[in-house]
């Protein structure tokens, strides 16, 4: 494994590198789900995910891999679907962050959420908030996506419980509802 591949640092949890120098901190504002939040003295290296969860206690955004590989922390950043663990929080200062909670007022997300419950797409539910954001984003862009496209579009969101069968059924149900089928 080449050393530059940051994703494959063996035993990264054992990493003791940070040292004892004072850690650089920054203060900034974040706009999340329409609300402004002042962040005081956060660690400069903090991801958007960690500031949302640990500083602002916005735990509707889930953390599971913190490497951009599982999609549990999916949010919209200025309308683009991103993994918030790969976004530097201090760099999201003037962006609009939308979590599953911020999708609420709009109709499509509600239909997606209802279909998830009804179709059995939720088991442990830990992937669900990120999955609902991803599905809502997909159906906004590609309302008629076929099965293969839906599968590819959700490949950044790992679910360990369902094997995706009921999640795909929920997506189809929303598509059918909208098409009046």
């Amino acid at each position: 494994m080449p050393a530059t591949d940051t994703g494959s640092t063996p035993g990264a949890a054992l990493e003791l590198a940070p040292g004892l120098a004072p850690e650089p901190t920054v203060s900034y504002q974040l706009r999340v789900d329409g609300a402004r939040h002042q962040v005081h003295g956060a660690w400069l290296g903090a991801s958007l995910l960690s500031v949302l969860r640990d500083t602002l206690d916005l735990t509707t955004v889930k953390d599971a891999c913190e490497q951009g590989r599982c999609g549990s922390c999916s949010v919209l950043l200025d309308g683009r679907l991103v993994a918030s663990c790969t976004v530097l929080a201090a760099d999201a200062e003037d962006a609009e962050v939308t979590s599953v909670a911020g999708l609420r007022p709009s109709g499509p997300a509600r239909a997606v959420a209802a279909a998830f419950v009804r179709e059995g797409a939720v088991q442990c539910g830990y992937c669900t908030p990120g999955m609902v954001v991803a599905v809502t984003d997909l159906l906004a862009r590609r309302p008629d996506a076929d099965d293969g496209e839906v599968r590819e579009a959700l490949s950044g969101n790992i679910c360990r419980c369902t094997g995706y069968g009921r999640i795909l059924a929920a997506v189809r149900a929303v598509q059918d509802e909208r098409a009046g089928r």
Binding site: T6, G7, T9, A12, A13, E15, L16, A17, P18, G45, S47, S50, E66, Q67, G68, C85, T86, V87, L88
Partner: peptide, 10 residues
């Protein structure tokens, strides 16, 4: 690449 690497200290 950078943000996850900052978290782990890599």
């Amino acid at each position: 690449d950078l943000v996850p690497a900052l978290r782990t200290g890599a």
